[in-house]
Nucleic acid binder design. Sequence first.
RNA 1: GGCUACGUAGCUCAGUCGGUUAGAGCACAGCAUUCAUAAUGCUGGGGUCGGUGGUUCAAGUCCACCCGUAGCUACCA
Length: 684
Amino acid sequence: MNNEVRQILVTSALPYANGSIHIGHLVEYVQTDIWARFQKMRGHQCLYVCADDAHGTPIMLRARQEGITPEELIARISTEHQQDFANFSIDFDNYHSTHSDENRQLASTIYQRNLERGNISLRTITQAFDPVEQMFLPDRFIKGECPKCGTGDQYGDNCEACGASYSPSELKNPVSAISGAKPTERESEHHFFKLANFEPMLRQWIRAGHLQSEVANKLEEWFEAGLQEWDISRDAPYFGFEIPGHPDKYFYVWLDAPIGYMASFKNLCDRSGLDFDQFWGRQSKAELYHFIGKDIIYFHALFWPAMLSGADFRTPTAIFSHGFLTVNGQKMSKSRGTFIKASTYLKHLNPEYLRYYFAAKLGSGIEDIDLNLEDFAQRVNSDLVGKVVNIASRCSGFIRKRFDGQLSAELAEPALFQEFINAGQSIAEHYEKREFSRTVREIMALADRANQYIDEKKPWVIAKEESKEAELQAICSMGINLFRLLIGYLRPILPATAAKSETFLQIPPLTWAELPTPLLSHAIAKFKPLMTRVEATQIEAMLNDSKEDLAARNAKQTKPHETRTEGHLAKEPIADTIEFSDFAKVDLRIARIAKASHVEGADKLLQLTLELGAGDRRTVFAGIKSAYTPEELEGKLTVMVANLAPRKMRFGLSEGMVLAAGPGGKELFILSPDEGAEPGMKVK
RNA sequence: GGCUACGUAGCUCAGUCGGUUAGAGCACAGCAUUCAUAAUGCUGGGGUCGGUGGUUCAAGUCCACCCGUAGCUACCA
């Protein structure tokens, strides 16, 4: 074993301060936390830092909508995030914010140094501008009709209906998503990071073992396309840091977000006396690892090393990317109740279950992992409750009742104990390589071995024989010692269960180095259940609760809640007054959704067969796949525009439209009539 | 459309450099057992390895094409 103490700095991606932590986020924090805890348990100096990512247009707008300052918003969200993390035993050594003095200074330093070395250029670009809000509009905040297929309400970058990509200026009838005004074009001077200056360095870097091979493959694309300049500035109004010497110009949030890793660490240094340069200086010998989702590889594997190198800081030792989380094989969905917030999960289930399940599925690759809820319950119950915890439970009774809690003075089966110790090496290697699923598999094989041992020795038979007291004590002590090793190996994954087990065993926190020393002639405490089974009803309740979360929020939106309503009205102002005759032209009818199905090849569409009674059936393509599944729509009554001119769409002819409210994505709500309405009835 | 991955038992996944009869856990069935939170042990059934074609003495593994899934496709956090 390598006894050298390593200096390791680990980060997880910074959660955006615009929403709650959900179980998808947790994959990454759990993965990082397990790895960091493992390193600490091995005796290394491992520091795990993170922060809230607090800047950008969405945060500015949300704060405005809520009628508070961005600072108030991010403070509130930060508290909430940290509470969720603490509940899941995510053990940060420091949690900070990108909206901090440390980050302002570091961002400025990094910018300044790159500027001095000719890595920043200034160029005037033309951008969409909202004349009402007096602000430039990011693509995401411009909506309009797709220039190719004519579908309305599309974002400025690509069409959700036909998949075409285009620039915002090509949209037909564009409107600002903030004010509803028609955007104008305006020129502005922007700051660009000249990524191409780093091409030789990056080409070498991405093939030097800092990245997973599939990630490096993917990045080749960018070199083939040619490295473009990266726009790192935004115009006021913007919530972020003003660029030194350039009033009303701000650093783009993605510039200062990764710098937040450094800032959080700097903040830790200032409080604890650690040496910042020892970790971030060009000559640093410390290891630096970023755990990230595969969606933000570009920022971390190209821009970030380039920025650092251009500012005379060290580059990361490695970037560890992971895949996304699906639930029951599908993307998390609010309507299915599988968009589960961390706080909702906690109301129903033990966080250790999820940590274990994620660990059991995580490898070092970037494939997505699936939370199959049935599998989740079976796996936790069988592995943790049935196998591991059960070993302590089935041995402790004898030790407690017959020997007053005292373990025997010698190991009954030193060879078996040694077998468990030997397995530790490969378990450690798998931890180190982030092959947690292999780690778990090996540990569970040992747990099976321990149960087999007890079964073989049959302590319950021996207990009935006289003069076999010593043998009984030895067998059960052996079982307890095997349990101790299993818990030791599982400790990075199950910190809370390990802590409870340490209380039961009456020992200090386990370290890897102590594992080979068995507990002999030692008193243990009374056994209390360390973990209980997952019940199907708990999972059911959690899913319902997630759905209710959504329902509650919807109710809040429809209620005349000042800020929320103002938000919607501000985004989409009430249209010009019309005459009744204009309204009468629209023939609205109650329709029954007779059939709903997915459309092959369509990302956003569902194909609906609407029944108006008397054999009148219409095929309608509706862009509501993001919010509804076909199953939940079938049989429902809704309201449709029955006399809309049929429109030829990519997948067929659409003969009308269903009415729905909401901004899109998960937040789409189709209208349904009150009880008693029948298909075909006219809405007037 | 292009690109990066993925597709193996009902479920979740292993399967290394191509090499005997494709493995594990869960679930299921039978038996044993009662120390343990209905936990444990033993035995068993279950697979056209997404499809088609190719390379090879030999293909789950390599190549091509197709189908399906996920993601990325740069001013979106």
